[in-house]
Simulated assay, not measured.
Amino acid sequence: MINNLFMPDFKSDDNRLNRIYIIVNVFLIFGSVIFAFFSSFNYFILEKFNVSLLNIITAVLMFFLLLDLRLNRAIHRSVNILVLILFIFFLSFIYLNKNEQFGLVWAHFFPVVSIILLGVKRGAIVSTLYFVLMFTLAYKGIGIWEHGEWSSVSFWRLAISSIVLFIMIATLEIALENSNKKLEVLSNIDPLTKLYNRRKINEILDKEIYKAKRYKTKLSLILFDIDDFKKINDWLGHESGDNVLKKLSQTVKDQLRDTDSIARWGGEEFLIVTPMTDIKECALTAEKLRATVESINCKHGIKLSCSFGVSEFDSINDSVESLIKRADLAMYDAKSKGKNCVSFK
């Protein structure tokens, strides 16, 4: 139940979008509660009615924004509105509260939120505008904010601490984004061939099957492997075998359309997803690839050939597993026919 509250069911191909969705949910849930609490605290304990009103308005806005996010899943809209709400709140809080109750300390919270939610570039623009307005309020308040002295030294401390905090958060966010990109590559790409790995091609295949069902379009697969690859490893060593895999992978990938996807399925096996293609067109593509592989010049006089299996998606009877199984059976049928040929089922 707690997971459903803070991490509701949402799935996107963009890992950053998934992360932002969870962060926005947490901000809105806790924000609604915290601002409602401070509204009561300011009203009943401190008797600061204007600040209490500002807090309760912010709490209500956050609550309704949370409901909208859960219903419509409009993440970008929710992010923009949340940043706008906090932008207005913090500047209003500074103006109403002056430098009492640590008003300027709370104000440092906004740049952190804006950079995390909007990204470094947009967050920097919004934060710069925020700092200009915040510094203006602080400068205008020199000598009158706080019961004691609010001097030019206090102003420069505020300015320097704000800039340092902004730089630190921006640096951390950039590092996090770069790390996430590297992790995404590592989780999706086969390190040897630089093709998609099995996990990623399964994701792609799921999407293409969904589109083929929804839009009544064709979809076919090519499954192939290198003939007698074990002999290459045994005779010339695994390093030569790895070089063969890399060269073949790049050669085949260069022959495909931008809409096609290829992955290393396992060992010396490869899987190609060909959207908007029926089995006859796919078989022609496989034959073209077979001839291309046969013409590859490898070191040590290695002659390459591959056996290809082709299958077409049946929207009524097929699943991912059955579609791949038929391509696999077709490939072994090609093996039984003498290898270096194309078969389809």
Results as ranks from 00 to 15, higher is better:
H238T: 12
I22A: 13
C341A: 03
M62K: 00
I20V: 14
F90T: 00
S311W: 04
Q255F: 13
D258F: 10
I115C: 02
Y21H: 13
I75A: 04
E239M: 11
N233F: 09
R257G: 14
D13P: 14
L118Y: 00
K230I: 09
I142D: 04
S161A: 12
K211Y: 15
S336P: 01
S161V: 08
D328Y: 08
N4D: 15
S40G: 14
L245I: 07
V293C: 09
N243K: 15
G267I: 08
G266W: 10
F37K: 03
L71R: 14
K181G: 07
S305N: 07
A283S: 15
L205R: 00
N340M: 03
V132N: 01
S40K: 02
L192F: 04
N18Y: 07
F155A: 06
L53Q: 03
W265A: 05
P191E: 06
I144G: 04
C298G: 04
V310A: 07
T171D: 11
R214E: 09
G338W: 00
R16F: 07
L219G: 05
L46G: 00
F38V: 09
F63G: 08
K288E: 08
K98V: 04
E294L: 11
L28Q: 03
N80V: 08
R290W: 10
T292G: 07
K182N: 13
I204K: 01
Y95V: 12
V51A: 11
I2N: 10
S52A: 15
V26L: 11
W150Y: 14
I222F: 02
T292K: 14
M62A: 10
F30C: 14
E146P: 02
V33S: 10
L172E: 02
S32T: 15
F38Y: 15
A283T: 14
S249K: 14
V310L: 04
E269P: 05
I23Y: 12
K299G: 11
G103N: 01
A283E: 13
S162Q: 05
V120S: 08
S40C: 15
S40A: 15
R16Q: 12
D9I: 13
R290K: 15
F102I: 05
V132R: 01
S336L: 09
G241S: 10
L165R: 01
G237D: 07
T292I: 12
L28M: 11
N197I: 10
I209Q: 03
L271S: 08
A283P: 04
E269K: 07
Y43F: 15
I279E: 10
S179F: 07
G267Y: 11
I81T: 08
S152M: 11
Y210S: 11
A159T: 09
I142A: 06
N180L: 11
L67P: 01
S319Q: 03
L323E: 02
N297P: 02
Q101E: 09
V310N: 04
F90H: 12
N3W: 12
K213W: 05
R290A: 12
